[in-house]
């Protein structure tokens, strides 16, 4: 930063040189005022691009979309229909299923967090082969959902390898993707398989900040593995765990479309619908863009609540520091 140091050295001499001149002094005052005004505007000018982009490309389309959700479809295209679309959504058993499935995802969230957490713990505790596991676990995270879906379509097919293995050990075939009670868990399971690598990396980063002397102390005191996980590792990693909770939730709510599209198409019996998939079907297949807008608005509100929770959780975690 050499310039910062040199400029104060220059200014006083300049000021000393010009001091005393009457009319010159007055014009200098005017210049200072002008400079003050332009400096006041400078921050606004500098944030303008960001604000403009957000307003023009984010907020304005959002407002248009919300506005569109209060208009009709088909023959009523463009005419205001009030809350009709929202009432239709509430009435639609398919949308109810989609929302219920969001609830199911929230309930399954602890599982989705516990799996990478446990595996990261084992890697941290240096189980034999932990180096291999570290890269193998991360591998699915680089695959696109479509590829993952296609792989599991083959694996979970009724006459697929998984059922064949089950058959050889005397268990009847399970219609993984054809039974409504099983299919949604199958898809969530695949989603967890495909994405837990990322959470695992976050956990490993959290472990890097863990005070090893605490664990050593616990070991010296004769703590069992379960006790050291419960009383040392989990409390020390509370921030990481919260972060993984929030990011996994967002991931589950917003990025399962590809898997659903490839694996179940929302079926069987509409049991694996999620709001995203519902929006796509209404927009593209049923030609109901306004209804899709209403569903999008509902999904947006859900995400808003999740996002606000996320901010408050992260803020609280930050305060504990």
């Amino acid at each position: 930063m050499p310039t910062k140091n040199t400029s104060p050295a220059v200014r006083p001499t300049e000021r000393g040189r010009t001091a005393g001149g009457g009319p010159r002094e007055r014009s200098r005052h005017g210049a200072a005022r002008r400079r003050g005004r332009s400096e006041r505007f400078a921050p606004y000018v500098l944030v303008a691009p960001a604000v403009l982009i957000i307003v023009a490309l984010r907020l304005y389309p959002l407002a248009l979309g919300v506005n569109f959700s209060f208009t009709g479809d088909g023959e009523a295209n463009g005419t205001p229909v009030g809350l009709a679309n929202y009432l239709e959504l509430l009435d639609d058993p398919l949308f109810q299923t989609a929302l219920a499935n969001v609830g199911l995802l929230v309930l399954l969230l602890p599982v989705a967090v516990a799996i990478p957490g446990l595996l990261a713990t084992f890697i941290f505790l240096k189980v034999p082969g932990h180096r291999i596991f570290r890269s193998v676990y991360f591998f699915p995270a680089v695959l696109s959902p479509v590829i993952v879906g296609a792989i599991f379509n083959l694996m979970l097919a009724f006459d697929g390898p998984l059922n064949e293995v089950l058959g050889t050990i005397g268990l009847g075939p399970v219609d993984w993707l054809g039974d409504p009670g099983v299919a949604k868990f199958a898809v969530v399971g695949v989603q967890i398989w495909a994405t837990f690598g990322m959470a695992l990396v976050v956990f490993l980063a959290g472990f890097a900040t863990l005070d090893a002397s605490l664990l050593d102390a616990a070991r010296v005191d004769g703590a069992s593995l379960r006790q050291s996980i419960w009383h040392v590792i989990i409390p020390s990693l509370s921030q990481t765990i919260q972060f993984v909770f929030v990011t996994t939730m967002i991931g589950m709510l917003t990025s399962m479309f590809g898997l659903l599209y490839v694996m179940t198409s929302g079926g069987p019996e509409g049991s694996t619908y999620l709001p995203e998939y519902y929006i796509w079907i209404q927009q593209g297949q049923m030609n109901r863009p306004a209804l899709a807008s209403a569903a999008s608005t509902v999904l947006f509100l859900i995400m808003l609540v999740v996002g606000l929770l996320q901010i408050s959780v992260l803020r609280r975690a930050g305060r504990e520091d």
Partner: peptide, 24 residues
């Protein structure tokens, strides 16, 4: 100083126009 602000304003304007142009 004045010139600096003028320049930044011009840059901002150019960026915005370019951004909007490519987006639309």
């Amino acid at each position: 100083m004045k010139q600096r602000i003028l320049w930044s304003a011009v840059t901002v304007l150019a960026l915005t126009v370019a951004g909007c142009g490519s987006a639309s």
